[in-house]
Nucleic acid binder design. Sequence first.
DNA 1: CGGTATCCAGCGCGATACTG
DNA 2: CAGTATCGCGCTGGATACCG
Lengths: 132, 132
Amino acid sequence: MTTRKSALRLRPRAGNLYDGKCATRGVLDHITSRWGMLILILLIDRTLRFSELAREIGGVSEKMLAQSLRALEDDGFVLRTVYPTKPPSVEYSLTPLGTQLAPHVRSLTTWVEKNLSAVLTFREKKHLRKAS
Amino acid sequence: MTTRKSALRLRPRAGNLYDGKCATRGVLDHITSRWGMLILILLIDRTLRFSELAREIGGVSEKMLAQSLRALEDDGFVLRTVYPTKPPSVEYSLTPLGTQLAPHVRSLTTWVEKNLSAVLTFREKKHLRKAS
DNA sequence: CGGTATCCAGCGCGATACTG
DNA sequence: CAGTATCGCGCTGGATACCG
């Protein structure tokens, strides 16, 4: 129940840009979300089951994992395949669209990881300067 | 006052990945935030003043703009230059680090903008299938 | 002009419990 | 195994007012 208006939460409050498309932010929210990025990156390498994703990511609640997967599926980036075995198993993989998108996400995170030490060092120097 | 522990809010709750670096998420939060992305992209083209940024972005409160700029400045992506004129003026530009980062952000948003119609169409088809 | 301080409503997200 | 349902708190971010 609750809200039946899907996960789209574009803010009609003000006319910001993103080339005039407010909906872009909605999609970006899904993609750049904490778990969304990890899901997209992990699925580049191979198809994964729900529990495998949970294990790989670590520290994600079932609720948030399901929710993030749902959002990416609704946007057409992730394909959900159900095998009616007993017990049931569900596999997640990237769609062609997701396969295009994921590298962009990975290049961003990779850059940040590589330059993380530079950022932390910079923060430290700023901090010392204030404590002069 | 309030919290004097800087803007860093890494969650020590669970050991997720990002190559073992939790702080990476903190940086990514700043970069991929609603206004953070816009700031980085806009500053690629040219240096902008506070009020110019506010006008270009549109619909951002002074509080959030200042907060986002502050986070990016603390991380070493944005350079803040104060000119002690009367009235005062402040210019924001990208640091060398920010100049490296921003294109990654732009490539992501550009891709999403280009493929937004595909996403929206996909959502529509899903919606119709459910209403069968 | 370029901010900070304060207040507070809303919902994001974690915890917990239950299901096919 | 792979989820959904419900509750409640905490933090995000908008509104408003004020300052150098």
